[in-house]
Design a protein around this nucleic acid. Structure first.
Lengths: 119, 119
DNA sequence: GTTTGCCTTCACACTGATGTGAAGGTTTCA
DNA sequence: TGAAACCTTCACATCAGTGTGAAGGCAAAC
């Protein structure tokens, strides 16, 4: 699909799809006329990017961990994982866990208040 | 305590503590000479603010939900909760849940990859 | 063949969170 | 009395993510 359809299907402005590409998060094919061409998987990919951005990750962090988030097959060879990279991924996972804990704690407090007051 | 000590104890630059105050997230007392004076609870409060900011909330959202996050007592009277406010709090709780789901999904994928490759 | 609706790149503006530093007041200590 | 270490306000800069629009190419439809 072209950029307009992807934009419509994800609700993300075409401007941002180009920006995410510039940041190395999307790599669409190009048609002969220069138009960007996205596969169906791009819809999920874009939603994933937006969710992570909205949860406080930067495009730089997302770019680094993105190859390992859908790791079905290709990256499974151990030589892809240098010790430094493993450490980075583990550190990011830990930061994400800290975010989850913080969010869960505060959301629960919010819901507790709501249910108490609502009676 | 004064701003320097709070900064030291939280690791947050004094500059940002003043900014959070400007945004309505902190309300320190003032000494006769104009110095800001924080109570001990400010340490936790600041860490809470930082955690939420790092998880994608804005100072504006934090300001709105903050009074209800520590709701031990004061705000428990139902007349504090207009239907509009309840809706807003519920909507924010839902957004937070969406963030948690997104983060957990991607963190789990990351950890799955790590444990597979590490063997 | 011109209009219409896509698409392209490029540039400039804005916003929120943050860094940096100037200019000056207060307290403490040598 | 003066230096050192606090504090104050104010202003200007930076950075990432986003909005907006200009100038122009391509393609389908009338």
């Amino acid at each position: 699909m072209r950029i307009g359809e992807l934009s419509r299907r994800t609700g993300v402005p075409a401007r941002m799809l180009r920006y995410y590409e510039e940041q190395g998060l999307l790599e669409p094919e190009r048609a002969g006329n220069g138009y960007r061409l996205y596969g169906g998987a791009a819809v999920y990919r874009v939603q994933q990017i937006r969710g992570l951005l909205d949860s406080g990750l930067t495009t730089e962090i997302i770019r680094r961990i993105l190859p390992f988030l859908d790791a079905g097959d290709i990256h499974l060879r151990p030589q892809c994982l240098t010790p430094e990279l493993a450490e980075l991924l583990q550190a990011e996972a830990d930061r994400i866990t800290a975010r989850i804990d913080c969010l869960a704690r505060n959301r629960d407090a919010l819901l507790r208040y709501l249910s108490t007051v609502r009676g």
